[in-house]
Design a protein around this nucleic acid. Sequence first.
DNA 1: TCAATTAAAGATAAATAGAGTCTTTAATAT
DNA 2: ATATTAAAGACTCTATTTATCTTTAATTGA
Lengths: 138, 138
Amino acid sequence: MKYSNATNYALHTMVHIMRQSNGEPVGVQELAAMQKLSPTYLSKILTKLTKSGLIESTPGVKGGYKISRKQKEISFLDVIKSIEGDTNLFECSIHHEGCLIENVMRQAEDNMKQELENKLLIDIVRMAEEKQTGIQSQ
Amino acid sequence: MKYSNATNYALHTMVHIMRQSNGEPVGVQELAAMQKLSPTYLSKILTKLTKSGLIESTPGVKGGYKISRKQKEISFLDVIKSIEGDTNLFECSIHHEGCLIENVMRQAEDNMKQELENKLLIDIVRMAEEKQTGIQSQ
DNA sequence: TCAATTAAAGATAAATAGAGTCTTTAATAT
DNA sequence: ATATTAAAGACTCTATTTATCTTTAATTGA
């Protein structure tokens, strides 16, 4: 039981796009090279992120991907849901309402999701930038 | 990304064994019938639980499975780890120490695990019994 | 001791999901 | 128009999950 590689790549990709936000869209070539992935494979992931409305894509010569303007508050959970779908980790095998086991599992999962909803990608970007500045100033 | 069916079956099986703890071991036939599983399949799951020390098995005529005497405090996490293994939901695809993304994911996961460690199967058993009594008294 | 019972172990197979490639199509800028 | 770039679809490969069947080992009780 693990999050898929795609979720991993998606999170890194989102952070990368946010970090070099000079307004210019970033192409899949660059994003793929950074993570040593094939462009065609990563493009599948990017399409999912696009359909979820987390990023915007423009085809053509100066095209690529950039963060949706409205969403400066994209959470970890947003990215996870975009890739994994909005599913639950646990569903009771015996279908009856009010399964006590399911209740416990569901509550623990909900709390984790809540926490991942409160964590924003922008925080990671800021921390990464501070870290970098810190190294440079030494 | 979901917990395996085996984890689901294991949790229900554990609760079932605990509920009819007249001291007698419960056979795989009964446990399998309850969940409409084949005995051979469920026995694989039971072997895992046995190897983890959560239950004890005795072969032979009056044999079967019963809860390990020492462990009246078996948690949800114990059962999950027994079946799924002691793995992490998320591991950074780019191997470097102190990955900021991994830190966030790991912390959320750890909190969920902590919660599942605090939830005991015995609580479910008690709630199920209260529920049953409640229905009977109406 | 012998027979019935029950768990454990191993080999195998089918189904599903994950990971990834290749090719074609559509949209955009110059 | 042409070069560039994303989107979509078909396809392959691999690993995991979900089982089933058969054989072996251990235990009880007659």
